[in-house]
Amino acid sequence: MSYKPELLTTAASLNELERLIAAGADAFVIGEARYGMRLPGEFPIDQIAEAVRIANPTGVKIYAAVNNLMDNEAVESLQAYMAALAETGVDAIVFGDPAVLMAARVHAPGIALHWNAEMTSTNYVTADYWGRRGASRFVLARELNMEQIVETAASTALELQVQVHGMTNIYHSKRSLVNSYMEHQQETDRLDRRDKDRGLYVMEAERKDERYPIFEDANGTHIMSSDDICMIENLHELMDAGVASLKVEGIMKSIDYNEIVIRAYRQAIDAYIADPQGYTFQEEWLDRIREAQDPNRELSYGFFYKEQVY
């Protein structure tokens, strides 16, 4: 069995999806905010169906994001939504709430399930636990280091997905925190909107060079990392470990930027597939990303090589 890692990304629209397929993406996570979390754009069910029609003939996969923390109200319509997703022919459903698993068993049987609880997917036994309950893929927390990822890959039967590029969420509240603050200040007219495209960020007094994007949507308030993960230099470590899916997160980036990033990772992955032993990283792949990178956002290794204490 030959190893071919998947290059997974996001898209804000069908148009972006087509451009990123052309740039070399193998798979997409798309969905709508009512069921999915922190998506670059809205894909109502008919557009998910359209995405499948565009993507599948080219061998590209579409995964539906149903990874919200569900409330009772969402659960009401979840069964119908799962059934509708099943009809679109999506290749997998991404979930992070057991309620989705319960609904999928009945209303979308046979569709692959990817467990993605973001920060709380941290070990191989838990991976296998969700595997025995129907998941085929385990999306690892971005707070793990390389050794933990490599060990998990060697220890679980499930496919692993690891984010290799872009922003990560670092805080999610159900509260409308920006709005509350503006109401406290009694000046709510300072901002017309508080969505992810408004360019809001928070800064802490002792960390003046770090800008943490903040936004509100139907699911509450989200704070994002001040740096962008960029693992292209060391991508072979993940590929050597057999990580099945390498994700480029496209949220809060322009399509032009995402296109450049996908092209670069495509080249790296193709070079690796062609000759795993002879593979060497090419500086020019990273240079193209560097050129496109927002100077206020550092390209970093995230937590891949960091020691954390507790």
Binding site: I223, V309, Y310
Partner: peptide, 18 residues
């Protein structure tokens, strides 16, 4: 935040909140 859905400490102080 939603409990468990916060890694501010990890980012600010390299301390693992979860």
């Amino acid at each position: 935040s939603f409990s468990g859905r916060c890694v501010l400490s990890n980012h600010f102080t390299d301390r693992d909140s979860n």
